[in-house]
């Protein structure tokens, strides 16, 4: 597995594991994208989902996501120890889409702040604007929702805050 050398999950692998919803489902509204490709002993996502959209028989199985049940509520995003779940929303017309991810790297940005979007390798790939931030009680982690260019829906997976004086 190439991922074991690079540490970067590929879209091919996500597709093969059934983690990518159809184009139609993406257009319908927010949905969770799991990037959990190794069967580690963990089922936090199953426990965190109020809609029973994530299933697992044994704790060492990979999660199975039911995209019809998933509402994109981000509760799994907030609690995933692997920070391996993202919620994307491509339902809006136009160039913009929404990306929600867990943030643990410092004071979160405020709604309205611009951030630099990073891909799975930490490369800057564009700019986004924060629309929502909340803190989850149990995990004490922040979930940040960012408006991003639609074309970065499956590319942007992290962000860094724009430093003072940085344009």
């Amino acid at each position: 597995m190439e991922e074991r050398v690079s540490g970067i999950v590929s879209l091919e692998t996500l597709r093969r594991l059934g983690y990518l919803p159809t184009e139609d489902r993406l257009r319908k509204g927010p949905v969770a994208i799991f990037e959990c490709i190794e069967p580690i002993p963990c089922n936090v996502c199953v426990l965190s989902c109020p809609f029973e959209a994530v299933k697992m028989e044994k704790i060492t199985d990979l999660p199975k996501v039911d995209f019809d049940r998933c509402t994109g509520c981000t509760l799994c995003v907030a609690q995933c120890p692997g920070q391996a779940i993202f919620v994307v929303d491509a339902s809006q017309d136009g160039e913009e889409a929404l990306l929600s991810l867990q943030y643990d790297m410092g004071e979160p940005p405020d709604p309205g702040d611009r951030v630099v979007l990073l891909d799975r390798e930490g490369n800057s790939v564009g700019e986004g604007k924060v629309v929502k931030v909340y803190k989850h009680k149990r995990s004490e982690a922040f979930v940040v929702t960012i408006a991003i260019p639609q074309k970065l829906l499956m590319v942007a997976r992290a962000f860094r805050k724009v430093g003072r004086g940085e344009s």
Binding site: C36, P81, G82, M105, L118, R120, G122, R157
Partner: peptide, 14 residues
């Protein structure tokens, strides 16, 4: 180590 831990730090460019 576990891939999820590796992916986390790769995203920040390490």
């Amino acid at each position: 180590g576990w891939l999820v831990h590796a992916a986390k730090i790769r995203r920040f460019g390490v």
